[in-house]
């Protein structure tokens, strides 16, 4: 059993939790993820490690209450326990080789929860980090202060302009590139469609672009193949080969369509328990 030490609501649907999990905190690195089960009958869900404290033995997760299991998780409070919490899984980001280089980290919505630790890792490794974060509207903005603290420049845009900066993350990216930002690496984390368009934007400029593939998983250790995707024409497993991949080689159209497989089950499950599914 893994104790929830702290719980904080970052926006109406986004929750941050600090979990007592020394076995994860000890080895965790930016870009890796955990798998948890909320209770005895729960499904196994993957969530990216948002932060960790090796000395305190804690691991932080940030999640959006979008489906049955994340809504259940959001109902837990500090002092409650999660039945299972395993990790760190996946391959960590290679931050050290980017010391002194120009990096642009792009987060879309909840993707900022993953973009933030990546930005932090690159920033702490000595890279020049621009962060571009996009949200639906100003109510959904999360981690603004945190992202500001680990970037040389933070740009936040909203779909409806409610924070005063209407636009898409790709608008900001294109402008920065046009202004001569000279990025060595772009990292995009967020909805599949956003990552696809970031990759389309960087491709003509030949800027290396990494995307974080948040596929559905069961075991998270390579055993089931549920998270597979096509990268450069080959089948890869997000859990053991990723979660980060060269975005210019990922078959986004396939992945986007694959993501709909359990939509109906999810809806039924939420209806059964009278949950309002986002």
């Amino acid at each position: 059993m893994y104790k929830i030490l702290e719980k904080e609501r970052l926006s109406s649907q986004v929750v941050k939790m600090k979990i007592d999990a020394p076995h994860v905190a000890k080895k965790a690195l930016a870009g890796q993820f955990i798998i948890l089960r909320v209770d005895e009958v729960g499904e196994r869900i993957p969530l990216t490690i948002a932060d960790y404290d090796r000395e305190a033995g804690t691991t932080t997760i940030i999640f959006q209450e979008v489906g049955y299991s994340t809504i259940k998780l959001g109902q837990k409070n500090a002092g409650d326990y999660l039945i299972d919490f395993v990790g760190p899984l996946g391959i960590a980001s290679h931050v050290d080789e980017y010391k002194g280089k120009n990096i642009c980290v792009i987060g879309g919505g909840l993707g900022c929860a993953i973009a933030y630790p990546q930005a932090k890792a690159f920033y702490n490794a000595g890279a020049n980090v621009d962060v571009i974060a996009g949200f639906r509207n100003s109510d959904f903005i999360i981690l603004e202060k945190e992202m500001a603290a680990v970037s040389n420049k933070l740009s936040i845009v909203t779909d409806d302009g409610s924070n005063g900066h209407k636009g898409l993350v790709t608008d900001v990216l294109n402008q920065s590139i046009a202004d001569g930002a000279n990025y060595d690496l772009v990292i995009a984390i967020g909805p599949l469609v956003m990552m696809k368009f970031v990759c389309l934007a960087t491709k003509p400029h030949n800027i290396k672009t990494l995307v974080s593939m948040n596929s559905t998983m069961v075991d998270g250790t390579g055993m089931c193949g549920c998270c597979r995707l096509t990268v450069d024409g080959k089948t890869k497993f997000a859990c053991v080969d990723g979660p980060d991949f060269d975005g210019h080689l990922v078959d986004f159209d396939e992945t986007i369509r694959k993501a709909s497989m359990y939509k109906e089950h999810e809806r039924n499950q939420c209806n059964l328990e009278g949950m309002k599914n986002a």
């Binding site: 076995h23 299972d84 919490f85 395993v86 990790g87 760190p88 899984l89 250790t221």
Partner: peptide, 10 residues
């Protein structure tokens, strides 16, 4: 010890 991936957790 469950939930422990040797190669990852240690």
């Amino acid at each position: 010890i469950t939930n422990y991936v040797v190669g990852k957790s240690a």
